[in-house]
Amino acid sequence: MEVLFWSCLLGGVLYAIVTVIFGDLLGTALDGALDFLSADSPWLQPMTLVGGVTAFGGAGVLLTRYTELAIPAILVIAVLGAVLIGIGVYFMYVKPMKDSENSTGYSMTEMGGKIAEVLVPIPATGYGEVLLRVGGAGVTNQIAASFNGQTIEAGARVVVVEVKDDTLFVSRLDLEG
Rank of each mutant, 00 (worst) to 15 (best):
A116G: 02
L63P: 04
I21T: 12
L25A: 14
C8E: 00
I71H: 09
I71Y: 11
V160Q: 03
A78N: 08
L119G: 01
F56P: 07
A116F: 02
L4Q: 02
M1Y: 13
M108T: 10
D166H: 12
T54V: 00
E101G: 07
L49Y: 01
E2M: 14
G58H: 07
S146C: 08
Y15G: 02
F36M: 06
V163A: 11
A154N: 12
M97K: 13
G60K: 02
Y93F: 15
F91K: 12
M1H: 09
G11I: 04
A124S: 14
G138V: 04
V13Q: 09
L14Y: 03
Y66I: 02
K98D: 15
I122R: 04
A156G: 01
T167E: 07
I87G: 03
M47F: 15
F147C: 00
L119M: 12
G112I: 14
A70Y: 10
F36V: 07
T64V: 03
G51R: 08
R65Y: 11
I21P: 04
G126Y: 12
G113K: 04
E176Q: 14
V13D: 05
V118A: 08
I21Y: 03
D165W: 04
L49D: 07
T64K: 02
K164V: 10
S38M: 07
I21H: 01
L132S: 11
N102L: 12
T64N: 14
G27D: 15
S146P: 05
